[in-house]
Amino acid sequence: MSAHTATAQTTTATSADIVRQVGVISAVTFMLIAAVIGVGAFGGTRVQDVQDDALSATGSYLAPASQAFSIWSVIYVLMVAYAVWQALPSQRADARQRVLGWWIAATAVLNGLWLVAAQFTTLPLTVLVIVLLLVTLGWTFHLAVQNPPRGVRQALFTDITVGLHLGWVALATVANSSAWLTQIVPAEWGQAADAVGIAVLVVVALVGVGIAIASGGRVAPGLAMGWGLVWIGVGRAFDEPESMPIATAAWIAAAVVVLVPIIVTATRFARNRA
């Protein structure tokens, strides 16, 4: 078995497996604590209110409406479910957990670190952390694709969890970077906002298509990206800064990233039946 491919169930547990299980639980716990602080509990400032409101729903032309962020509840629930499930004795020596466990833990830590960076550091550092999170999620998802799940539970707790996290963070990286650039570019550059925004959304759609094709039609990343894109459209259509061209482009991109993985999956299924 290669370092990155789990081909069989391993039955002999080691101390390293227990360390991995504890590490995942610790990482997800850290992420949850950071999330609680990030929503303004314990007297803290909500994320959308820090950094001079740069991260709010009106912070840039590519910021999604505030309703979009409810997806975090789904991602956090799935991450907690994964942490509990992978801690079961039946998963301790599982070959797939040995490949994915520490990487999923790393995504949880970086998720929490982004919230810490947003609260206590600078906007450029939030961009750096979220890019690192995106890269780590991309690699983790790649490993999940290379090591197909055995059964529904593995697909739900690993692939769907990582896929939704990846798709949403891909959108969040665009919004975060746009918020930073909005703060530093000259005001007159706003005249090109529509053209630049549409160009970025085209790239986002291409990235979604690339993920769908490379993963053989996994739908979770596209669903999360599509969710974020729909709410970018809503934000630009009904809130400030207003831009119907960007709203329209966002809705078209949403349709693309959701439909392409479905088409890829249907095509593969039809080919296998032929």
Rank of each mutant, 00 (worst) to 15 (best):
V80S: 04
M31F: 13
T173L: 13
S177G: 14
V185R: 15
A54I: 07
D159K: 08
L110M: 10
V129E: 04
T12V: 00
V196Q: 04
W227R: 09
L156S: 02
Q154K: 08
A212W: 11
V145D: 03
F269Q: 14
S215Q: 05
V77W: 09
I213K: 13
S90M: 08
Q146V: 05
G38M: 06
A108Q: 01
T265D: 11
L259Q: 10
V24A: 03
Q86V: 10
V162H: 04
H4M: 13
S66C: 00
D17I: 02
R271F: 05
Q48A: 13
Q97F: 05
G112L: 06
A175R: 03
V28G: 00
T182L: 01
A8F: 04
S178R: 01
F141I: 03
T136L: 02
I262S: 09
M31T: 09
A266P: 07
A199W: 13
T136I: 06
A250S: 15
Q119Y: 08
A212M: 12
A249V: 14
S73R: 05
T161S: 14
N147W: 00
V131F: 14
A105F: 02
G151A: 09
M225F: 10
V260W: 09
Y76Q: 10
A8K: 14
R92D: 00
G226H: 06
A27W: 04
F157W: 12
W251F: 13
F69Q: 07
S15I: 11
R20K: 13
T11F: 00
A205Y: 04
A57E: 14
G23V: 14
A212V: 13
L156H: 03
R273A: 14
A34Q: 13
W139S: 00
F157K: 04
V169Q: 03
G38C: 06
Q48K: 09
A253I: 10
G217T: 09
S243I: 06
I246E: 07
V109I: 15
N272R: 15
W227G: 03
T248V: 15
G167V: 10
Q119G: 11
F238G: 10
T7Q: 09
T182V: 07
G163T: 12
D52G: 01
L100G: 02
D17L: 04
L115A: 02
S2N: 12
V77T: 15
Q9P: 00
R268C: 02
V256T: 04
L55Q: 08
G235F: 07
I213H: 11
N272V: 12
W189E: 12
G23H: 12
A253T: 11
A57G: 08
P148W: 07
A68I: 06
A254G: 05
A57W: 08
V234G: 01
T158S: 12
V174C: 01
V257G: 08
G197E: 02
L100K: 03
R20H: 05
S215L: 05
A250T: 05
I252A: 10
I198L: 07
T58G: 09
A254M: 07
A8G: 08
A108D: 01
L181N: 02
A13D: 00
T10N: 00
S90D: 08
A170S: 15
I263D: 04
R98E: 00
